[in-house]
Amino acid sequence: MDLSLITFVQILVAVIAIICLMVANAVVMVYVERKVAGFIQRRPGPYEVGPWGTIQAICDSMKLLAKQIFVPANVDLVLFFLAPVLAFFPVLLLFLPIPFGPYLTPWKTPDGLVLILAFAGFGVLSNLLAGWASNNKYGVLGAARAVSQSIAYEIPLMLALMAVVFQAGSLNLSVIVEKQGWVPWEWNIVTQPLAFFIYLICLVAETNRAPFDLPEAESELTAGFHTEYSGMGFALFFLSEYANMLLVSFICATFFLGGYKGPIIDGFWWTIIKAYAVMVFIVWIRWTFPRVRFDQLLNINWKWLLPLGLLNLWITAIIIKVVN
């Protein structure tokens, strides 16, 4: 891995672009989420601010910026303010190895998946710190849930992605996309349906979204680990939640849905369309299902997804061995 000056400048530019992408994504997704929720519930959703309520999300973020940050008594101040920052910044790095387009990869590294899986654990650390530092019993319960959930679901997630890696023979995300064709039946979703299914469940669980939103289950824990956060602290958690969603959707598009390849001209627009389709799917299931219980959540993982993932990996390995 040689970090020449050009690579360094490239990464710097990419990080700035990714920050813009994350913020823009949060604004768009807040709007999309509220609109989809509204339409599913037979109401118009945001409507008043701007044409069809399009400026609503920006106004909300302005409100969050201007709000006072309330610090409860006896909190651990360093960790209390560090946690939202930690939630936000590691996500930046995770976007680096993703091939957005044929010529648009922030950092072409041969082992991009390792980087993603290594840094994905940072998000849960911030949740733990936030819950612990805010001196709140709901926060601690939420943090404990967040840790055990994230750690549990990282394993089948990794197994599902490894099956694709076996098939492509590379950890490089660009190579994985290149090995897929442009028509849907040449995507990995056809050759690896089980891995896709496992990944889809893990994706919802890893991003703490309903029906697996136990760390912030509002009917049980009010708001879980970010109960005591207000203003910008809450906004950063919010931003990182949507950034995480975007990340797992991009990975889903890259690994299973053919990445930047599409029927007309290959390009980043296909990645974005596919990723946002996955995001809308996540939003759709959030507004449809009730929440699972915590022991059920872990049972799904350890008793079903993990054996299925191992089985899938095993079958993939045998087929690759036989074919070659």
Binding site: V36, F39, I40, Q41, R42, R43, Y47, W284
Partner: peptide, 21 residues
């Protein structure tokens, strides 16, 4: 059963709005 539930919300997504603005 989860797919059936998703079909229900899919239908409602395209049904007309019920609230009065």
């Amino acid at each position: 059963s989860l797919l059936v539930g998703m079909a229900v919300t899919w239908d409602f997504f395209f049904s007309p709005r019920y609230t009065i603005h």
